[in-house]
Structure formats: C-alpha cells, structure tokens
Amino acid sequence: MERAFARSYDSLAAIYEFAEKFLAAHKFSEPARFPVHLAMEELFTNMVKYNPDVTGDIDVSITASDNKVTVILQEYGVDEFDVTTPIKVDTDAPLDARTPGGLGLFLIQNLVDTLDYEYDDGRSRVIFTKKSGIKHV
C-alpha cells in the first residue's frame, strides 16, 4: 500500500489512519503497532522539520511479509541526512541538564528491528522493519 502525504504536521492523522488500517487488516499485534506508528511519525516529522524549503509530498509505503512490516518513506530534492547515524542521549541526565528535542531518532533507533537509509541525487529514502508479536515497545 502506498500513498503520498503533504509535507506538513497536519498529515500525521492521515498517516496514522493509513498505517492503522493496514496493520489491522494484516492482524499485526497490538503491542507492535505502537512502535510502527511512532517510527513513522518521527521519520516523517524529521523530513518536514529539516527540509523547510522543500514543498513536494513525501511518499509512504507499507508492506507485510513473514510476520514483519516494512515501511518506506521517500522524499525528493533534499540534502542527505542519514537517520541511521547513532544518536547518543544521556538518559540519566538530571532535569536541569535536559533539553527538549533530540529524542525522536534515538527512540526509533531503539524500537525498530532494522533501519536503513539510501541517498541518491536528491532522493532520500528511509526503510524500517518491525516484527509482529513482540513485547511492549
């Protein structure tokens, strides 16, 4: 299943509905749906946030096989931004040392099963997979 979404946070509700419909139809386990939705939002909002001058839609596809879901987000006319570069967050830092932001990629790097990035001539493509039937997040 594939669909293009306008490059706006206002697309998040539609992206959720798009994914939820697919995951439910494929009987994807409820505990595993949460990280799929989370990863889709974090990656989509990352694309919106870091390419403010780009106006083209973001293509999103979702497929299932072997008890696993594969999600691809693709955008065009953008600079390279490798989301697989390890993010370090000091999760033991005291409150006064914390700053809002920076947790999104950290979370998905820990929650999805595989995360890959491809870049070619302005086309940025992020692919992640998540197995069904896992423990909570």
Partner: peptide, 11 residues
C-alpha cells in the same frame, strides 16, 4: 504500557 516504555527508554 506503550507510553510507559517510551518514558523508560527516554529516561
């Protein structure tokens, strides 16, 4: 449970 786990991962 889901949000609890996100809190845990985030410290």
């Amino acid at each position: 449970n889901h949000i609890h786990d996100v809190f845990r991962y985030s410290g």
